[in-house]
Design a protein around this nucleic acid. Structure first.
Lengths: 189, 189
DNA sequence: CTAAAGATACCTACCGCGCGGTATCTTTTT
DNA sequence: AAAAAGATACCGCGCGGTAGGTATCTTTAG
């Protein structure tokens, strides 16, 4: 009934969420270059001014998006580790599975677009490095071997391959690599 | 002696080279975002108009740069394969060595910055994919096993790690991974 | 309970900047 | 003379960001 966006009910939490969600969506559909302040605001049904109220700068928006996505990955990996009966290599398995078939970290996620800007942007790079570093320290007892390290690196490489080939679905080749890497986490060094 | 760039001797080949070289240099120093038409032209001692005479668009400049760098990598890898006494895994070894310590493809090269735009830009992506595909087909007899595939993927992953951590030199950790991967190319599946 | 007062949410309108690109001119080369 | 090489001056566009207004919500004083 408002007809005018001015007079509608104010729901800051939902607007903030909408901004993050649409930013992620745009990144997925049109690449990171498509993530402009104007585009995100419009998609979320808000003006640029409104966006800048929630995020003081574009940088802040990107960092917010990144942190949001990272938190989901974190939860997903924790859940996977907990469900894994075998402690040794459990983190590596969770990580590999997350990369290949994860709901929040797999190929068909905003990460595909976002991972590129992570490389570019120093502050995002720091967030990512802190995360990996903390994870590594935390699972050093179960996943500290060089063999498992290489397995994780290979998963990263597969990820890179996927991104550069621009596929939308996993090829049979990648599936084979996935299986092989998982199997490798059960081998003893 | 010219004082005025107008009256200096014209050497189109060298100017073209200078444009590509400085574009690469800028990409290394200031990231891919720093590679603007103006910046490249100025660095090469030419105006924008001059640059556009050699490259009809920025896209053409980037593609030219990419092709140029790729050609060097190609040569380096060919040389490494030829110098390798053992045929089995020779391409994988050449590739891994190129990634870790290569003069034209390693960490301290313009590739670190350029690889990001490769992911973004569809046409560059195609060039890269064609290259890898051709290489893979060519060395299928000696490097076609899944084990070697994973080794190459791990090298890519290590490369990604290096880029995201923003280091300028190789860590001891990465050196260890390098050795391990090379060793793995000598193992029989 | 009510209404003023303040904070919060959001919009409209604008700005400066640097980008890629073009048109046209001058000089050199062939 | 003609073509190539390069300079100069300009343009439009979209970007991130700002200023100041107007709603709605929350708190508090009477």
């Amino acid at each position: 009934m408002p007809a005018n966006a001015y007079t509608r009910a104010k729901q800051p939490e939902q607007v903030r969420r909408a901004l993050l969600d649409h930013a992620a969506s745009i990144a997925m559909d049109h690449g990171v270059a498509g993530v402009t302040v104007q585009a995100v605001a419009t998609a979320a049904g808000v003006t640029k001014g409104g966006l800048f109220h929630h995020f003081g700068s574009k940088q802040a928006l990107i960092e917010g998006l990144f942190a949001d996505l990272l938190a989901r990955v974190d939860a997903e990996i924790d859940a996977a580790i907990e469900a894994d009966p075998k402690p040794r290599g459990s983190f590596t398995r969770a990580y590999v599975n997350a990369v290949f078939t994860g709901k929040s970290f797999g190929f068909a996620t905003p990460w595909a677009a976002l991972s590129m800007v992570v490389v570019t942007d120093p502050s995002l790079r720091r967030l990512w490095n802190d995360w990996t570093k903390a994870r590594l320290k935390r699972h050093r007892a179960t996943d500290g071997t060089p063999e498992l390290h290489i397995v994780r690196l290979a998963a990263d490489g597969a990820w890179l391959t996927f991104v550069t080939t621009g596929q939308t679905r996993m090829s049979a080749d990648l599936r084979a690599v996935h299986e092989r890497l998982i199997a490798q986490t059960y081998r003893h060094g």
